[in-house]
Design a protein around this nucleic acid. Structure first.
Lengths: 347, 347
DNA sequence: ATGAAAGCGCTAACAG
DNA sequence: CTGTTAGCGCTTTCAT
């Protein structure tokens, strides 16, 4: 399909040397080559506009400088941020990113990873893992460098970078309880992901810390972290009970969904219900009202993940454990003290 | 780096056939092979967990099923949306996406594209082009299939998909003028991109349509489409004059920046200043107040771009022209009729 | 229908 | 320091 590309042989011929000599001359590292031939080869290459074929090179060297990255949902702003951080670090080191969106579909995840390994990627970043992932297990069996970002997997130790999910929601719940809320709902994330589970555990820990009892009817699991799923879950919650004054959402997206669902129910934030998010997306800053949330440094998480992968690729011994970055509670307008029933009636 | 992978030779040996036969058996398309050997080879492959090496295959077939995609800024939600659409179409067709973020830096763009062509991508999608792009020129010289998305290039015809930028801003200005605004400012995008220029022209056309005169002091050019640049530009505008009642921003991001800058100046939207955006990002829905904007189907743009590229890769004759998708004005709370001076004083 | 041989473009021993 | 030779893993003529 590509036109008649200039090959190393052409360069060699023009420079009047053997292809292998040309190769050495261009990859100065490999072996010593006379200054003069280096010059001539370089000139020939430049004159012909020679561009080495990475494919052929990789076939020989077993290095592609390709890294596969699988994300669950590019439309969730968390992931572009992480990918950005990743791409910056990896790009600087000469690696280039292959990206696949999996939509949380295990089959697609598998297919994507297959396509990546078939292309001999030097390493893999997965942000898509289910809690019980046979895929990660298999990958661990292969020797391919692998770093998990965001989500971890039960029972199998892997290098991973993630936010401190439990602590984040703990802080949110603690904040809400501190404002005086005692009926705090939780819209949880998918419970087949570590993030969903860990954030739920953070919720439980927060309640416990404040001596509040768990009311199972105040917990609804959203199918995904996005706004649609969040709105749906919040509507479900409202269908069951209105006896709560605050919601700790498992993500900013879910919190935005709550905004919608609460508005439909003609409930005002934060007067009727306080809402706290999780993530700290830029868009959380300008909602009406601005969203109280726990902000995580996603680009930094991406960068760190990239560095770990790079280290693993270089054969360094990367600890198979999760590095957790703390989030930062940012209090904004979507949370406030609960309004007592009597207050409402006098209003 | 990868462990001892199973090769086609291994499969052939196990099946008791020649490697070339094994190859044929697996790629049923190539030539007829006896039913029996196909079975045996398939079984052998399955038993060994054979995974063909795309690298080697590509080297021979001159097809990588790799598509390079360059975006200016992943943090701008427009681009993840486009990439998502792209990736869906391309993935379905068996292609996989190489992604690079260029930060609007021409040198990085060049480097990324180089890295991609060196890897023999079957096609290229560029969303990064400057109005005068030597890169696109060179790429047009090579025979590599190329589709531009979002931005086009002056003087060189290329297959491209983009929003109807001019019409979009035209509609926004028309809407504002219809509300009674006559002093409408424009925060423009970078004028070295087609989007920046076209949207500016849409602004001019909108003024003309309504018989409003252009006041150059009401036009400020932002350095980028993001919120920071938008806020900066809006502050600049406010530094010059406050004699305007509406802003037509060249992007939602810029509009969000205006929200910030106007708030700093203690100007209330839409009472003091109406703000209209451009893009229709999900986050525009929940701002306080919700942003009036022109919504574009970015995923669809991505999908279309992907389809065009696929067609080009297949050798079909793709017209070297821009397909423009119309946006849809969505009126929300950030725009309203201007409040006359007298009204303000009586308030 | 299958085996033999050649080669994609490059690098890496090994001689000389 | 450079040319020769071999081969990465696969596909594809060409015989048979």
């Amino acid at each position: 399909m590509l036109g008649n590309r200039v090959t190393l042989k052409d360069v060699a011929k023009r420079a009047g040397v053997h292809p292998s000599t040309a190769s050495r001359a261009l990859n100065s590292a490999s072996g010593r080559t006379s200054e003069r031939t280096v010059q001539r080869v370089m000139q020939a290459a430049a004159a012909l506009g020679y561009e080495p074929d990475q494919l052929a090179r990789s076939l020989k060297t077993k290095q592609t400088f390709l890294v596969g990255v699988a994300v669950p949902d590019l439309l969730n702003a968390v992931f572009p941020a992480v990918v950005r951080g990743l791409e910056a670090v990896l790009g600087e080191a000469g690696y280039i990113v292959i990206l696949a969106n999996t939509d949380g579909d295990t089959a697609r995840e598998r297919a994507s990873v297959r396509a990546m390994t078939a292309r001999q990627v030097d390493g893999l970043i997965l942000m898509t893992s289910q809690l019980r992932s046979s895929l990660v297990n298999e990958l661990a069996g292969l020797q391919i460098p692998l770093v998990l970002i965001g989500r971890v997997v039960d029972g199998i130790a892997m290098p991973a970078v993630a936010g401190d999910d439990a602590a984040g929601v703990f802080d949110a719940v603690d904040h809400l309880a501190g404002l005086g809320h005692s009926r705090i709902a939780h819209i949880a994330g998918p419970q087949d992901t570590s993030t969903g589970r860990d954030r739920y555990h953070g919720y439980l820990a927060g309640l416990r810390e404040r001596g509040l009892e768990l009311d199972p009817s105040l917990v609804v699991v959203a199918q995904a972290y996005d706004e649609i799923s969040g709105a749906r879950a919040c509507r479900e919650l409202l269908g069951w009970t209105r006896d709560f004054t605050a919601i700790a959402a498992a993500s900013d997206g879910i919190a935005f969904g709550c905004f919608d669902a609460l508005a439909e129910a003609e409930l005002v934030i934060p007067r009727d219900v306080s809402v706290a998010g999780f993530g700290g997306l830029p868009s959380s800053l300008r909602t009406g009202p601005p969203l109280t949330t726990v902000a995580f440094p996603y680009a930094e998480i991406g960068r760190l993940g990239g560095e770990l992968l790079l280290a693993a690729i270089l054969g360094e011994n990367v600890p198979r454990e999760v590095v957790r970055l703390k989030g930062q509670l940012v209090v904004r307008g979507s949370t406030g003290p609960p309004v007592s029933q009597t207050d409402v009636s006098t209003a």
